[in-house]
Design a protein around this nucleic acid. Structure first.
Lengths: 235, 235
DNA sequence: TAGTGGTCTAGACCACGGG
DNA sequence: CCGTGGTCTAGACCACTAA
């Protein structure tokens, strides 16, 4: 298997390692772009692109005219910016969560999904629709999309936490990449499932979830009754 | 006044405009990088950098081997997760955020507020109500509560980011607290300020924010139009 | 095969920070 | 002044998609 990883990513990996093991200590200046260009033999553009990645990860900080520095304190986001999953939200309040799989099928990804997963129109996605109830009251319609990599989910018992299955069967730890909140109004199907009038306002929560190493894992769309439920994000 | 705006930003601005006014219609392909390189006279790298911006803003979607396309549905405004701060991220989208202070007064804390701040009924709270608009459209009614420690906020120009003021005047970095999302319905005052019918569904976001060393800093309640605004939390 | 975006190079000049 | 990062160019080749 040949290595088709772009140079700038390889270089970013190297630099990241050197930051982690304190070859480049916190707060100190790393070699200039030109120095790295000469020492690595890669062009300055490539060096810049590698650095750009680490700046985005907040491991490095650039200062025009001075240099590029290793960020002082490690960004705290790992622990503090913790998103509570729907399951956690419910269980924290001592309520009972039940899940029922409504539908499960293969669908054609839309453009947004193609972009996120890095797939084409031909690569079908596994769509799972589940109804989640709190203390017997239907609260949330959740739709999840997975790539064919996770086709074996089809054989699993989905009437429980999918994350549990992912951890146990695939050894994957999901990390939320992006979460958006907005308001939507019920579709007929949602109204039926949630047993509420059509056109009721609902909270729409969309997650783009990555696995341990930044691989796109799945997209989740939750539509839930905001009048019955308060969603806590950060603890 | 010389124009020191980089070309790639100018180009991104032009392209953004052409997308907004549908010169490049939704879902269609925009000219290829080489075509833009030739038509604009700028190098392909510069063209790519401009496009990169718009991809980051989700106005464009790239598909390797096919082309660059205008994103199907115009993404609602997004905000990355900075406590208290709409400002930076709204403006990064090329949209204008305006803030107008509606009300400012001292109020008696309710029980929940007393518990959070660790104060008694006698300790008044500074209540600030502000209306925030994006491109002139009222989007959000924000209410903030501060303890008397921050009384001097009364003298500040609050028609900008409070986050900025806190950082500059008080040297405070707000840190993670708790954030909850739910759906609420307009009060008469909110309906008036946001210029929408009474009883419309709104997104209600409540923040309990701590300062650097875990001191309770303030409570923020944002009521915003979920149909015009998508709230993004990015990790 | 032709056309697209993705990567990469070897230069150039500019703007900023500090001696 | 020098060294830094910021911008920009004019090429080149590769990987992917579709006809």
């Amino acid at each position: 298997m040949t290595d088709i990883t772009p140079i700038y990513i390889q270089l970013a990996d190297e630099l990241r390692k050197q930051i982690r093991d304190e070859t480049f200590a916190k707060g100190t200046k790393i070699p200039s772009e030109n120095a790295l260009h000469e020492s690595t033999g890669y062009s300055r553009s490539t060096v810049r692109k590698a650095i750009e990645i680490l700046v985005k990860e907040k491991l490095l900080t650039k200062v025009h005219g001075k240099g590029t520095f290793v960020t002082q304190q490690t960004p705290p986001s790992e622990q503090t910016h913790h998103f509570l999953s729907f399951t956690e939200n419910v269980e924290r309040q001592g309520q009972t969560l039940t899940t029922k799989t409504v539908d499960l099928r293969w669908v054609t990804p839309d453009l947004q999904q193609q972009a996120f997963f890095g797939i084409s129109e031909e690569d079908q996605l596994l769509e799972i629709i589940r109804l989640r109830s709190i203390d017997g009251v239907p609260i949330c319609v959740e739709t999840d999309w997975f790539t064919k990599e996770f086709a074996s989910l089809e054989q699993e018992d989905l009437d429980r936490s999918i994350y549990q299955i992912l951890t146990q069967k695939f050894g994957i730890t999901p990390t939320t990449g992006k979460k958006t909140f907005e308001i939507s109004y019920t579709t007929p199907q949602e109204a039926f499932l949630l047993d509420i009038p059509r056109g009721t306002a609902l909270m729409l929560i969309e997650d783009h979830v990555y696995s341990n190493y930044g691989q796109p894992l799945h997209i989740s769309k939750q539509v839930l009754r905001g009048d019955k439920f308060k969603y806590a994000v950060i603890e």
